[in-house]
Computed example of a mutant assay.
Amino acid sequence: MIAATKQNLSTETVTIPVSEIEEIFKQIAETLQNVAKNEYQFINSCKEFFQFEEPKKVQFNEAGDCGYIVPIKNSIKQFLNKPDAINLLITNKNETISSTKRDTDLLLTYCDGVAASSNKLLHKNKSSFLLQLYSDDISVTNPLGPKKDEKNCLCFII
């Protein structure tokens, strides 16, 4: 049994049998296994339900060097169409503004820096959201092997 205390006007203890929790986890595992029996079915389900777009291969030269472009525009659109996404973004932006007003030495976002304060477009559209891209190289081979620096992947994170 797992006991949880729920605090409202009065304090009550709710007891949930471990067997019920195990049953819930079992149902979750079965659902995931049914959706993703193999990679092909998983990708098709992602396309159907989340409008997933596969990375596009870009050939750099005749030697076979290539890269992949992962489209993010549709992913951002899907995120912004979630019911609470806009409200959460506005709440976060307001909290960040409050924090930086209390402590002027804090730089919590791009908006707190000199580049943003001198950006005319941001002054004109005070309620706009900025997308901040972060990039980093990751090595995709065994770091101990002789080809440790040969294959790198550049990743962008929003």
Rank of each mutant, 00 (worst) to 15 (best):
I43R: 05
D149S: 13
N38Y: 06
K126T: 00
C111Q: 12
T109V: 06
T96K: 02
K26H: 07
G145V: 03
S19N: 12
N125F: 14
S128E: 01
F50W: 13
K101H: 08
E12I: 12
I69K: 11
T91R: 01
K120V: 04
S117Y: 06
I16D: 02
K57S: 03
K37A: 12
L88T: 09
F156R: 06
S99Q: 15
N74S: 13
T104M: 01
Y110Q: 06
C66I: 04
K77C: 02
G113F: 02
Y110A: 02
F60K: 13
L121H: 10
P17D: 13
N34M: 07
Q132A: 13
T96G: 05
C153G: 06
K93E: 00
M1I: 08
D149F: 14
V35W: 10
S19L: 05
V140A: 08
K151W: 08
F52A: 09
S19M: 07
E39L: 10
L80I: 04
A3Y: 14
I72M: 15
Q41W: 04
P143T: 00
T13A: 00
Y110I: 03
T100I: 12
K73Q: 09
K126Q: 05
N81G: 02
F25E: 11
L121M: 08
I86R: 07
N87F: 03
L144Q: 09
L32I: 07
K124V: 04
A29D: 15
S99K: 12
S75P: 02
F60Q: 03
N142H: 03
F42K: 04
M1Q: 11
G145E: 01
C66N: 13
L106V: 04
L32Y: 07
K93M: 01
A63K: 15
F50Y: 14
N119A: 04
F42V: 09
S128M: 09
S127D: 02
F60Y: 14
V18N: 09
Q41T: 01
N81E: 15
E22R: 03
P17L: 07
N92L: 11
N81S: 12
F42N: 03
C153F: 03
D84S: 10
H123G: 07
Y68G: 04
P17F: 08
F52D: 02
C66W: 07
F50I: 05
E12P: 01
S127H: 02
L108K: 02
S19A: 13
N119S: 10
Y68C: 09
K6Q: 15
Y134L: 10
N94S: 06
N34L: 04
L121Y: 07
A85R: 02
Y110V: 04
N94E: 08
P146D: 05
I2L: 12
K47F: 12
F60V: 11
